[in-house]
Amino acid sequence: MAADEVARLWDAHVHAPFPLALRDAEIAGIDMVLLDAYTAGCVSSWLSSGGRLDAWRRTAIASCLAELNTVLPLLTDPTQAAYYRRLRDLACCICAESTTANECP
Protein backbone atom coordinates (compact mmCIF):
# COMPACT_ATOMS: atom_id res chain seq x y z
CA MET A 1 0.00 0.00 0.00
CA ALA A 2 2.83 2.45 0.73
CA ALA A 3 4.11 2.16 -2.82
CA ASP A 4 0.73 3.25 -4.19
CA GLU A 5 0.59 6.17 -1.77
CA VAL A 6 4.14 7.23 -2.59
CA ALA A 7 3.42 7.01 -6.33
CA ARG A 8 0.28 9.12 -5.93
CA LEU A 9 2.00 11.75 -3.79
CA TRP A 10 5.04 11.76 -6.07
CA ASP A 11 2.92 12.37 -9.15
CA ALA A 12 1.26 15.32 -7.42
CA HIS A 13 4.63 16.64 -6.26
CA VAL A 14 6.37 16.56 -9.63
CA HIS A 15 3.47 18.48 -11.15
CA ALA A 16 3.41 21.14 -8.43
CA PRO A 17 5.42 24.31 -8.95
CA PHE A 18 8.10 25.07 -6.39
CA PRO A 19 7.03 28.03 -4.20
CA LEU A 20 9.01 30.90 -5.73
CA ALA A 21 9.21 32.86 -2.48
CA LEU A 22 11.25 30.00 -1.01
CA ARG A 23 13.77 29.81 -3.84
CA ASP A 24 16.61 31.45 -1.86
CA ALA A 25 15.07 31.02 1.57
CA GLU A 26 16.37 29.49 4.74
CA ILE A 27 13.94 28.72 7.51
CA ALA A 28 15.32 27.77 10.91
CA GLY A 29 18.71 27.50 9.21
CA ILE A 30 17.38 24.99 6.66
CA ASP A 31 17.84 25.70 2.95
CA MET A 32 14.40 25.10 1.47
CA VAL A 33 15.60 24.26 -2.05
CA LEU A 34 18.07 21.69 -0.74
CA LEU A 35 15.44 20.19 1.53
CA ASP A 36 13.19 19.75 -1.49
CA ALA A 37 16.01 18.34 -3.62
CA TYR A 38 17.31 15.86 -1.03
CA THR A 39 13.84 14.60 -0.19
CA ALA A 40 12.90 14.31 -3.85
CA GLY A 41 16.13 12.48 -4.62
CA CYS A 42 15.46 9.90 -1.93
CA VAL A 43 11.87 9.44 -3.10
CA SER A 44 12.97 9.01 -6.69
CA SER A 45 15.60 6.46 -5.66
CA TRP A 46 13.08 4.59 -3.51
CA LEU A 47 10.64 4.37 -6.39
CA SER A 48 13.23 3.30 -8.95
CA SER A 49 14.72 0.64 -6.66
CA GLY A 50 11.47 -1.13 -5.87
CA GLY A 51 11.01 0.39 -2.43
CA ARG A 52 14.55 0.06 -1.14
CA LEU A 53 17.15 2.61 -0.11
CA ASP A 54 20.83 2.21 0.61
CA ALA A 55 22.12 3.14 4.06
CA TRP A 56 23.13 6.67 3.01
CA ARG A 57 19.66 7.45 1.63
CA ARG A 58 17.91 5.91 4.66
CA THR A 59 19.88 8.31 6.83
CA ALA A 60 19.20 11.18 4.41
CA ILE A 61 15.42 10.63 4.31
CA ALA A 62 15.32 10.46 8.11
CA SER A 63 17.22 13.76 8.26
CA CYS A 64 14.86 15.29 5.68
CA LEU A 65 11.88 14.18 7.72
CA ALA A 66 13.30 15.81 10.84
CA GLU A 67 13.93 19.05 8.92
CA LEU A 68 10.45 18.95 7.39
CA ASN A 69 9.01 18.60 10.89
CA THR A 70 11.02 21.67 11.90
CA VAL A 71 10.00 23.95 9.02
CA LEU A 72 6.37 22.98 8.52
CA PRO A 73 5.03 24.75 11.64
CA LEU A 74 6.85 27.91 10.49
CA LEU A 75 5.28 28.05 7.02
CA THR A 76 2.28 30.39 7.12
CA ASP A 77 1.56 30.52 3.39
CA PRO A 78 -0.96 27.74 2.55
CA THR A 79 0.62 26.93 -0.82
CA GLN A 80 4.11 26.65 0.67
CA ALA A 81 2.82 24.58 3.56
CA ALA A 82 0.96 22.20 1.21
CA TYR A 83 4.08 21.74 -0.93
CA TYR A 84 6.27 20.84 2.04
CA ARG A 85 3.53 18.83 3.77
CA ARG A 86 3.38 16.60 0.71
CA LEU A 87 7.17 16.14 0.91
CA ARG A 88 6.79 15.26 4.58
CA ASP A 89 4.09 12.72 3.74
CA LEU A 90 6.42 11.16 1.16
CA ALA A 91 9.27 11.00 3.65
CA CYS A 92 6.98 9.46 6.28
CA CYS A 93 5.80 6.75 3.90
CA ILE A 94 9.34 5.86 2.94
CA CYS A 95 10.58 5.86 6.54
CA ALA A 96 7.68 3.66 7.58
CA GLU A 97 8.64 1.15 4.89
CA SER A 98 12.35 1.31 5.63
CA THR A 99 13.96 -1.73 7.17
CA THR A 100 15.48 0.71 9.65
CA ALA A 101 12.29 2.59 10.41
CA ASN A 102 13.54 3.15 13.95
CA GLU A 103 16.04 5.65 12.46
CA CYS A 104 13.16 7.82 11.28
CA PRO A 105 11.57 10.25 13.73
Rank of each mutant, 00 (worst) to 15 (best):
I61T: 11
I27R: 12
L87W: 00
A3F: 08
E67F: 01
G41C: 08
N102F: 08
G50A: 09
E5I: 13
D77R: 08
A96P: 00
P73S: 04
P73G: 05
D77S: 07
A81S: 13
G50Q: 06
Y83R: 06
A62E: 01
L68R: 02
P17F: 12
Y84H: 06
R58F: 04
M32L: 14
T76R: 15
E97A: 13
G29W: 10
S44C: 14
A66W: 00
N102K: 07
C95V: 09
R88A: 11
A81Q: 13
S44N: 15
D54M: 07
M1P: 01
L72G: 01
R85E: 14
L47Y: 06
I94E: 03
C64P: 02
T99N: 07
C95N: 10
C95G: 15
R57W: 03
V6N: 05
A21C: 11
T59H: 09
A16F: 07
L20I: 08
L34T: 07
W56R: 14
A25E: 14
C104G: 03
L75N: 01
C95P: 08
C104N: 01
A25D: 12
M1F: 03
R86Q: 04
L9D: 03
D36M: 04
P78W: 04
R23Y: 13
R8E: 11
L65R: 14
Y38H: 11
S48G: 05
L35G: 04
L87H: 04
A66L: 00
R8H: 08
L47H: 06
V6K: 05
I61S: 11
D24F: 10
E26R: 15
P105K: 07
